[in-house]
Simulated assay, not measured.
Amino acid sequence: MVEPLAFSEESWHRPRLVGIVNVSADSFSDGGRFLAPANALAHARRLLAAGADVVELGPAASHPGSEPVTADEEVRRLDLVLDRLVAEGIPVSVDSFQPRTHRFAAARGAAFLNDIQGFPDPARYAELADTGCRLVVMHSVQRRGPATKVRTDPQTVLTALERFFDQRLAALQAAGIDRERLIIDPGLGYFLGATPEPSLAVLAALRAIRTRFGVPIMVSPSRKSFLRAITGRELAEIGPASLAAELYAASHSVDFIRTHDVAALRDALTVLTALNQYAGASR
């Protein structure tokens, strides 16, 4: 049964907000607006002022049809922006699956490494153990390339998700990476399939996933394809649907929400926190 949106004193805790800065040429959400370092820095600072706890820099797009980017180019895009933010004491996450980019980001002070492939290479685990970065281990039915046209069964996705995290978390820990450094991302949108049902199933199962694995969860429903499919809205109109999915995730024990619109989510969470506290005090 799908759990309803419910904020109880027992279940509610405010997630940390991860503001997205796409330092890329062909992001599906902002089309290269923040590729220039000055623009990326300005946007990062806007997100922080709006309430972001972490800024995530993405040097390459991962949507279907995006152009491959070399690790050297990712590093070039990150170079100045990462240095400036770290120098200002800002927690930075870097979204990349490329080992060279991971090494560069860790050496330059990134606090988080976010890998959409879930850190698949065991030969690198000793190196990752030495970085001290927190690792966002993402589950994905798909790998880079066009989204599948096959309707993926939601239960199949949930079973694969459990198997993936059972194996990957065990392997990372066996290599000396403390469990406290691990964050899991169940994946949403095209990462799970071309239809909304797998993403809905994952969102509905968030509390069970959190209980099973006992590590923090990050989700990113913001502007995802499954929301556009459900609502029939274009990308420019998908803000309310993104916020609804984010609030559902917040009510189901996630620890981090990765979002494009930090201000809207911050304000919504502030109001819901006040309502929850008032309701608790009135009992």
Rank of each mutant, 00 (worst) to 15 (best):
T159C: 06
I238H: 10
G239I: 08
T159D: 11
A60C: 06
V2T: 13
A40I: 04
S93K: 06
L172I: 08
A264P: 14
E10L: 14
R77C: 11
S220M: 13
I90W: 00
P221V: 05
D115Q: 01
A175I: 08
L272M: 06
G280P: 01
G176F: 10
A52M: 04
A170D: 07
A50K: 06
D83Y: 10
A170W: 07
H102Y: 10
F165L: 02
R76K: 02
R283C: 12
G58D: 04
L161V: 08
L269E: 09
L247R: 12
V21K: 11
R179W: 06
F28N: 15
Q277I: 13
T148V: 06
G19N: 11
D261A: 10
P64K: 14
R228F: 13
E3Y: 11
R100D: 11
E10K: 13
L192S: 03
D130E: 15
A229M: 15
G187V: 08
A244P: 02
H13M: 04
N39E: 15
A264F: 03
M138F: 00
T231C: 07
M1W: 06
E127M: 11
R134S: 10
L182T: 03
R168P: 02
S222N: 06
P99H: 12
P15T: 11
R163D: 08
R124Q: 04
R124I: 02
A147S: 10
R181M: 00
A50L: 09
A71E: 00
I230R: 13
V215A: 03
E3F: 14
A245D: 04
W12A: 08
I184D: 00
R77H: 05
V137M: 03
N114F: 07
S11Q: 07
L200S: 02
V75E: 03
L48C: 12
G109H: 04
E197D: 11
A264Y: 05
A61S: 13
I209K: 05
I20C: 09
E56G: 08
L275W: 10
H43L: 05
Y190H: 13
W12P: 02
L200D: 07
S199E: 08
F119M: 01
F191C: 05
H63W: 07
T270M: 13
V262W: 01
A263R: 03
A204P: 15
A245L: 11
N114V: 07
D95A: 02
G280C: 11
L200V: 02
H139G: 01
I209V: 12
Q155P: 03
A170N: 04
F28G: 14
D255K: 01
V94C: 04
V2A: 09
L172K: 01
S253W: 15
G58I: 08
D72T: 14
Y125A: 09
V54Q: 07
Q98I: 02
D261C: 10
V157N: 02
A249N: 01
Y278G: 14
R163T: 09
A263C: 04
S24T: 15
L200A: 03
P240L: 10
